[in-house]
Design a protein around this nucleic acid. Structure first.
Lengths: 243, 243
DNA sequence: TCTGTTATCTATAGATCTGTGGAATATGAG
DNA sequence: CTCATATTCCACAGATCTATAGATAACAGA
């Protein structure tokens, strides 16, 4: 039996793509990339967030830099890493989607906290926009403050999950809460919702997270000012071409 | 300085995703996956196409199976592998897109054969549909016959690149040729176009390849009958939900 | 049942990857 | 210039991955 062999330069091509594959072969590197899709961070911050030793984290970051998936910015004695462009975040999302679709284990882990695929509970972006405008809901950003600062849903209140219990009183029990976090793989918002519901509040998760919000061409606010009344003081940007 | 640590079950999550990453860390596995996104194939066919020994190819396929990215079907003494669903192909596409966007090397390799990002030359799907309907162009599927058989643009003529030179006479020099292949990373169609142009024929590539065509919700014909007149005899399917 | 074909499994040697502590570098403050 | 901080570089030991040959298993046909 005979089969055709492949054309010439392709070997190099796949070798190049494997450079990218090399990044996502290590769980910690995926975690780092996921973090960097939310906001830039210093090496130390990344090491602490992922539970790695500093030198190990740095080594992983070098691998990611060689694959050109991250870029750096120096500020004084500190080096800030960030995802090298929107395509990187899209790729991480694609990886997560594939995981949820094909690996039952992923869905199980997510479902264990109520973030699984029975997402009938989730609020769509369109619904949120509409209801937030009329003041019916409070939008809660439960990610760490630095991620909120790097970009958030306009009008959202920053309330990191770790501080949620402590600041429950600040929430108006009459309003429904819509919480969001990093995306479909992130457990912060589902955990927040579980906590809130246990306290008798009405709460739901937003579908997806901030990267998808941005990618949908919706406005993103920048800065740490939490809106006490209705409008935030941080800059607000609307990207060029919605999709 | 203090940073928050991450919540609980996440480690397992990224470990699961790394199972997928493990597949794309090896160039040959990416190549195999790319092939399987076009059509199912036997282990031997895959080994020959990628230039691997049989046992090595089998080992790679086991890794891919463990990550649930491929599935198998047994037919007599032979085992056919296929991509485990549309999400897998979408992921491979995302990987390729990321490579083209971030790795200059990838673009260089593609450009060396005229398939680079200066794709102003490419025909859009919409344009092709319109012009093919009015009979102005010949649509050429330059992939191997088994991929044509597994699915092709309705009305396209199967003419694998390796046979192109030999069958040049069959082409009407008055018509423009639109060639397509596996996708943006595939070099078959660009090479075919280069060959045709060297012979003085008018020829262009279609944007992307068959997977993207299918993903766009356009009809896909199945079978090996090449249309001599206007209509193919193979089945023709229109998927449920276009996108 | 026996035989040939196709694919998987096993064992192994060589290569690559990981985590680590400690040295080296770069920057800013005194 | 010297010191303190943040990061990267280096060397090494232990773990994992890769390719391959040969054994084994599944199947079809006589």
């Amino acid at each position: 039996m005979e089969y055709e062999t492949r054309a010439g330069g392709r070997a190099d091509l796949y070798e190049q793509l494997a450079r990218i594959g090399k990044v996502v072969v290590h769980p910690k590197r995926i975690e780092l990339l996921d973090l960097l899709c939310q906001a830039e961070r210093s090496v130390e911050a990344l090491a602490v967030a992922t539970g790695l030793k500093l030198s190990t984290a740095s080594a992983h970051l070098q691998v990611m830099r060689q694959a050109r998936l991250v870029e750096t910015r120096r500020e004084g004695t500190r080096v800030y890493y960030r995802a090298a462009g929107e395509e990187v975040c899209r790729f991480v999302t694609a990886l997560g989607d594939l995981g949820r679709a094909r690996l039952a284990e992923v869905d199980q882990i997510l479902r264990a906290i109520g973030a699984g695929s029975e997402s009938a509970e989730r609020v769509t972006r369109a619904e949120l926009l509409e209801r937030a405008r009329s003041g019916e809901v409070v939008v809660l950003d439960v990610r760490p403050v630095e991620e909120y600062a790097a970009g958030h849903v306009p009008g959202a209140v920053s309330l990191p999950l770790e501080h949620l219990e402590a600041r429950l009183d600040n929430l108006d029990p009459g309003l429904e809460v819509v919480a969001y976090c990093r995306g479909p793989l992130c457990l912060l918002a589902p955990e927040a919702v579980a906590t809130l519901r246990a306290r008798g509040l009405r709460a739901r998760c937003l579908e997806d997270g901030l990267p998808e919000w941005r990618r949908a061409g919706l406005p993103v606010a920048v800065g740490t000012d939490t809106p006490s009344g209705a409008r935030a003081k941080g800059r607000e940007t609307r990207p060029g071409r919605p999709r």
